[in-house]
């Protein structure tokens, strides 16, 4: 019989469809009787959705300004006679 800890251990494999039918069956059986694990699994699924939607457009302005500074330094060094 699958314990809560075992379910948490294989939770990602379950969500990604990496378990075989026997393992899937024991997960389903456990979920049928355990509300805590249902909540955990739902929340872990929400976590993956969050990662999928995580955008990185922010802070691009700041990045460009940092690059300007570092390029200016590098240019100053490059101008120096050897």
């Amino acid at each position: 019989m699958l314990k809560c800890r075992d379910l948490v251990r294989v939770a990602s494999d379950y969500l990604d469809g990496e378990l075989d039918w026997r393992q899937r069956l024991s997960v389903w059986t456990h979920l049928a009787i355990c509300g805590h694990c249902r909540t955990f699994l739902g929340n872990l699924r929400a976590t993956t959705a969050l990662m999928r939607g995580h955008s990185d457009n922010r802070a691009r302005e700041a990045l460009v300004r940092r690059i300007d500074e570092r390029v200016a330094e590098a240019l100053a060094r490059a101008e120096d006679p050897p």
């Binding site: 805590h36 909540t39 955990f40 929340n43 699924r45 929400a46």
Partner: peptide
């Protein structure tokens, strides 16, 4: 077994 289970559902 869970000793400190997840308290909220945010799915």
């Amino acid at each position: 077994h869970w000793q400190s289970p997840p308290r909220q559902r945010w799915s």
